[in-house]
Design a protein around this nucleic acid. Sequence first.
DNA 1: TCTCTTTTTGACAGCGCTGTCATTTGAGCA
DNA 2: TGCTCAAATGACAGCGCTGTCAAAAAGAGA
Lengths: 347, 347
Amino acid sequence: MVDQAKKKASKSAVTIVDVAALAGVSIKTVSRVVNSEPNVRQSTRTRVSQAISELNYRPNTAARVLSGKRFYVIGLVYENPNEFSYMKDVLNGALKACEAGGYTLLLLPLTLPNKELVSEVQIFATQSRLDGVILPAPMGDYSEINALLDELEIPFARIAPKTDIADNISVVCNDEEASYSVTKFVIEQGHTRIGFIKGDPEHGATDKRFNGYKSALKDFKLKYDSKLVCDGQFSFESGKSATRKLFKLTDRPTAIIASNDDMAAGTIYEAHERGLNVPNDLSVIGFDDTPIASQIWPPLTTVRQPIMEMAESATTLLIRKLRGENIELPDEPFKCSVVTRASTMHR
Amino acid sequence: MVDQAKKKASKSAVTIVDVAALAGVSIKTVSRVVNSEPNVRQSTRTRVSQAISELNYRPNTAARVLSGKRFYVIGLVYENPNEFSYMKDVLNGALKACEAGGYTLLLLPLTLPNKELVSEVQIFATQSRLDGVILPAPMGDYSEINALLDELEIPFARIAPKTDIADNISVVCNDEEASYSVTKFVIEQGHTRIGFIKGDPEHGATDKRFNGYKSALKDFKLKYDSKLVCDGQFSFESGKSATRKLFKLTDRPTAIIASNDDMAAGTIYEAHERGLNVPNDLSVIGFDDTPIASQIWPPLTTVRQPIMEMAESATTLLIRKLRGENIELPDEPFKCSVVTRASTMHR
DNA sequence: TCTCTTTTTGACAGCGCTGTCATTTGAGCA
DNA sequence: TGCTCAAATGACAGCGCTGTCAAAAAGAGA
C-alpha cells in the first residue's frame, strides 16, 4: 500500500494517457469525463470512469492549471484574531468544502486596521492565482476589497456580512432573532434593567444583535434606556471597560448581555473584581459559544452559531459558482440556538 | 495598479521568455538565476535580476511543478483541537516561513485517536504532492507516520516532540527548566503541598514538565508525594476531574500546578464550585499562556512558550533542507518565561 | 600562439493536461 | 438506401518551466 503510494508520488504516476489506453479512448475524452463535460456517450463515460477508478487516477493539478484557465485555489482572507475559535470553525468548514470540491485552500491572515489592506489582498490574489475568495466577517464589508475582487474578476463569498450585495454569495444566520430570544429569556427571568454591550461596528452581527435586544424590550414593555447600552469591540478588554461603565450607574443592571463571549468573560471578570456573585448578583449572557464560555466560572449562557456549517456552505456555493453551475442563494438564514448555563438565574 | 495586477493575473502575465528577452539571455539562464543555481557569471546574474524586478516577474508555480521535481508545498498535519490557541501560533509561524520561502502551506486537521491515521496522512502526502511536512506535538511522535514519510522520502520537521530521531529536524523549548522555575516560584511562596496535574502522555512536554516539578521539589527538600500527582489529558474536563481528586485528599494541596492553561481553568472552575477563593485558599498555575489564562478570573500565573517562533524556525529549517542547503540543527532550545498573575499568592 | 580544460550559456524536449478545431459516427428522415 | 446534421470523438498545439546535453566562451598551461 505504501509502495503503491510511493510509486504514484514519484516516477510512474498514473496519467491521463494510462487511463485513455485502458479505456480505449483518446485522452481528450478522458479529460471530458474528468471535468463532467457534455457530449460524451453514457457508455463511454462509464467505461472511462471504470478505468479511472481501476487505476486510481488523480489529475495532476499543475498540468491542469498550466493548460487551463482555472487554478483550483480558493483564498481565505481573514482578520487574524487574538481568540481564534470563530476562525477555527470558519477554517474547518472551508477546508471541508474545498476538499470535497477538489480545491486547495490558501490563507491570508491580516491585521486590522491596515492601511495596506487592499494591496495585501491584491498581491495575494494575483501571486497565489486564486479562483475565488472567502471573506468571513468583518472582511466582507470592506468595499475596497469587494471592488478590487470585482475588478480582478475573482468571485467571492461572504460569511455573516453586514451589507447586502446584489447577486453575491453570502451566508448569514438569524442573529436578530437569536438576540431577541435570549433577551426575552432574560426578561422572563424577571430582570428589568438589562445592560447591553455592543460589538465591533464593522461586524454585521453587531447591529443585528442590538436590534434583537431592542425589539424584545419593546415587545415586553420595558423602557429602552441608552445608559444601559455600551459600545464594545468584541474583545475581552472592551468587555471589561464597558462593564465598568455599567457598574458606575446608580441603578446598575441586574443582567448584562454582551455581544460575544469574550466580552462576557470581561463582564464576569469585573464582577469578580467587585466581589459580585454571578449569577446571584448579576446574570451574564454571551454570544458564540466559544470554548471560554464553558471554561470560565460560572459557565456562560450564550448563543451558539453554526459557523462551521455556514463556512462550509459559503465555500461550496463559491466552488459551484466557479464551476459555472447555476447556484441559488440560500433564502433561509442559518439557525442559532440559546445555550443555557449557570451564568443566568431568576431574580 | 489594479489594472496592472489584472493584466498579470489573466492573459499577458510576464513569463520567463519576457525576462530572457529583456536581459538578452536564454530562458535557461533566467531559470538558473531564479533558482540560485551555480555557474552563472556575476554580471549576467545582475542583469537578469534587474530584468526580473523591472518586469516584476514571478515564476509560474504550476509550470515549475510540472516540469521539475519539486512541488513547493509543505503540509501541516495536526490534531484538530478544541482549543485552537496552540495551533494558531503554529499556523502563523509556519505560514510566515512558507511565505518567506515561496512555499504553499496545506493543512491536514486530524481527529485523534484515529485508526486511519497513517492512510489519511498517506493520501494527503501523495495526492497533495507534498515536498515536506510539519508535525507539531503530538503528531511528531507517531512512529507509523514517521516511517511512512521516510518511506515516501518526504522530509519532515517536528515541533516539541517527545523522542529524538537522529538527523531529523525538531525544535524544542526548555520545558523542564521552565517547570522547575515555576515550581520553585511556588515553593518560595511558602507552599509545601503542591499538587501537579500531568498532561497528555503523548505530548513531549508532559514528561518534561513533570520532571521539572520533581527536580524542584527535590532541590528544595520537599517530599515527593504521588498522591499529589494526577493524570490529565490537557483538556478542561480532565483538569476538572483531576482537581476533584486532589480536593478529596484529607490534606489537600494549597497550590496546584496544571500542565496547561485549559486544565488550570478546570482547577479554578472546581475551586469556585467548592467556594474556595483563588488565590487565598488555593494558588493555581498553568502552562502556555493561552488567551484563557488572562480572561478567567483570577488571571492565571502561567508559563509562556514561544510557539510561533518555534514553528517558524522548524518550517524555515525544513525549507532549507528541501532546497538542499546545509542546515545545522539548533543546539539551544527555545526559552520559556514565567508570567506572574493573580492566581498565585504567598501563604 | 595553440591546445586542453573548465566555466558559462543555450537549444530543445517534454512534464500532463485543456482548448481548438477537424473528423467520425450515427440518428433521423426523405 | 442515401443524405443531412448534430453529437461524439480525436489530433494536436501549447501552457511556462526545468532537465539534459551540446555548444560556446573563457582560462590555463606550454
